[in-house]
Every structure is written in C-alpha cells, then in structure tokens.
Computed example of a mutant assay.
Amino acid sequence: MGNTKSKILVTGADGFIGSHLTEDLVRQGYNVRAFVYYNSFNSWGWLDSSTDSIKNELEVFSGDIRDPYGVKEAMKGCDIVLHLASLIAIPYSYHSPDTYVDTNIKGTLNVVQAARELNVSKVVHTSTSEVYGTAQYVPIDEEHPLQGQSPYSASKIGADQMALSFYRSFGTPVSIIRPFNTYGPRQSARAVIPTIITQLASGKQKIKLGSLHPTRDFNYVKDTVNGFISIMKSEKSIGEVINIGSNFEVSIGETARLIAEVMDANIEIETDDVRLRPEKSEVERLWANNQKAKQLLNWEPVYAGKEGFKRGLRETAEWFMNKSNLSHYKADVYNI
C-alpha cells in the first residue's frame, strides 16, 4: 500500500503540516494532487513557497472541504487520501464554533463518504492530542478517555468518530493519525512556539504569553510527516488510532526558556490575559505514549528528548529569522 505508483490526494495541502507532507511525498516520487482552500487570490498557501521542482510536479485542486461535490471531484482517480483539512485554532473555536462543526465534522464526512463511493484504498484522517483533554494518566495511550475541553477538540472527537464509523459500518479503509503538538517552519503564530520566536525575532525581550505551567509533548514537523507516510504505507494501521508523539513532556515556561537559549536572547515573560483559556478549557498536561506507533509502524521520533527538542527549536528559529519568512507574520498582533 502507498507505493510510488499510487495517486495521493492531500487535503489541507496549503497548510503548515500539509505543505511539508505534500513536498515530502513529491520528493519521494509519489503522484500528488494537492487540495487547497479556494480563494480569489489563487493562493496555494504555503505551497506558494515551494520550489519550482515541487510545484511543477503537483496537480492542484482548489475547493472547500465543506462541499461534498467538490470533495468527490477532487478524490476521483486517487488511490489514497491524506485528510488534513481542518480548522484548528482553539481560541477561534470559542468565537465561531459552528464553523468547526461544518469544517471538521461535515468535512470529514464528505471525505469518507466519497472514499466509500469511489472505493479508495486508504484514508488517513488527522486527529489531535487535544481530544484527550487534560491527561488522566501519563503517558497518554490510545485507550485514554476523550474529553472535549474546547469546541475545537469536541469537533475533532466528532470527526474521528465519523471516520471510524465508516470503517466499522462499511469497511472503509480508514486509519487515524493522532499527532501531539506539532511545531516547525510555517506554523501559524497562533501556536505558542511561533508566538515566542516571532516576538524575539522582532527584537522584543518582554514576551506576551498565556499560562506557563501546562505541559505539552512537542513533535517536530519532520517526525509528524514521517508518521503520516508510515501510516499510509501500513496495512496494519487500518481501523487503528495511532499516537504520533515524542514521549517528552515539557512546560510552556520551560519551552520559552529553551527558545531563548537557542536564539541567544534574553527573555522576560509577561502574562497576557487575552491569551488565557477559560479555566476548565485549559488542557493542563499532554504526554504521548508512542509505543503503538513503534510496534505497528516501526516509527519513532528523530527529534526525541530534550536534545532533539532543542535541535527542532533551533531549525524552527533559523527559518523564522529569515526576513522573508518573518514578513508573513504580525508579531505585534495576537492571532487567535
């Protein structure tokens, strides 16, 4: 499954993880159709930054994951679908929860319904560690209870269950990848690592952040991409939910200090109330058990442990320090 003769549709190919995944698939010789969000600027998102050697090998389909007709058209002739298209910002989900139901749940229904009708050989649906909520035990394995602590996480729980229901009801070959907190070049500044880096790269020493005590399991984007490709290739992954995480827990406060260290910067942290989640909505602790991925897929993180995390932070900071890359970001504006 997933040999280079396969035609692969990547939804959300214009986004942070999707663009990295699309580029890597092209480099490995796959025939890739990139589903990007239709807009009047004819922008392909981050794929606009790809080299000509990548773009010349891509077939691009502009559409909207909420449109079942467009989704089915995009999937025609494809053997495999890697479904990443999603609304992911947690603060915006407090603001506009209805859009998360439409995009994340209905969008996933459109993908698996079309996959069923077109007899697609594999769908890899993207979940998130946020579906676990605050850890009830650590490290968190795939059997951990699901808790919707934000409208975003609730919509992703619904999307995951929709995808799995098609596997159980109709035998649709679905796999669920559940990445923990992915970071790296191109990530939106609504996420904490780019928030810190862009503020420091813009010359600030006093950094505005939300809560510092919650812990996360950060996963460098190259490891996440390798997880997608490993799941895509594996017959054993069908019908399974698989964590992709580093198995390294670190607090937001310590993360900020490590970023300052790799950027050789002085840092003073100021709590910004607008960046705080409602108390019961804050996910206090995430720490991935990645044994299932190791056993089923032979996948493990290359950027593992504290030293791997620092290496990933260094590579991320170097990308953001490039002025042409930094120009895409508004370091002075809180991005929900």
Score class of each variant (00 low, 15 high):
M321L: 15
W287E: 01
N290E: 04
F320E: 07
A317H: 07
L297E: 02
F309S: 05
G305C: 11
T316A: 04
N322K: 15
G308D: 10
S324F: 12
G312S: 09
A304Y: 05
K306I: 15
E315G: 01
E315V: 00
W319C: 02
W319H: 08
K310R: 14
E318Q: 15
Q291C: 05
K310W: 11
K292V: 03
L296K: 07
F309H: 13
R314Y: 13
E315L: 14
G305M: 10
N325S: 10
E307V: 12
F320M: 10
S324A: 11
A288D: 13
K310P: 00
F309K: 06
W319F: 15
R311G: 00
E318F: 08
L313N: 06
K292R: 14
F309T: 08
K310G: 00
R314D: 13
T316V: 04
W299N: 04
A293P: 00
T316K: 06
A293R: 09
E318R: 13
R314E: 15
A293F: 05
G308P: 01
E300N: 12
L297D: 02
E318C: 05
W287N: 11
K310F: 06
E315M: 06
F320N: 01
W319A: 04
K310M: 15
N289G: 01
Y303C: 12
W299V: 05
G312K: 06
Y303V: 12
Q291S: 12
K292F: 03
E318V: 12
P301I: 11
E318T: 13
N289P: 00
G312Q: 08
A304L: 11
E315C: 00
K292C: 04
K294A: 13
L296Y: 08
G308Q: 07
V302M: 12
N298W: 02
F320C: 00
L313W: 07
F309E: 09
L313Y: 09
R314G: 03
N298K: 06
E315A: 07
K323H: 05
S324D: 14
Y303L: 10
K292I: 01
W287L: 14
N290Q: 08
K292Y: 05
W299I: 02
A304Q: 14
A293E: 01
F309L: 15
K323I: 09
Y303T: 10
P301F: 03
F320Q: 03
T316N: 08
L313I: 03
N322P: 01
W287G: 01
W287S: 08
Q295D: 15
M321V: 02
K306W: 05
K306Y: 10
K323M: 05
K292N: 09
W319I: 08
A317W: 09
M321H: 01
L313C: 08
W299D: 00
G308I: 09
Q291M: 12
W299A: 02
R311F: 04
F320W: 11
G305S: 09
L296D: 06
A293T: 03
L296I: 10
E307N: 12
Q295R: 14
L297Y: 04
L296H: 08
A288Y: 02
G312W: 02
W319V: 01
K323R: 14
G308N: 07
E315F: 04
F309D: 03
F309V: 07
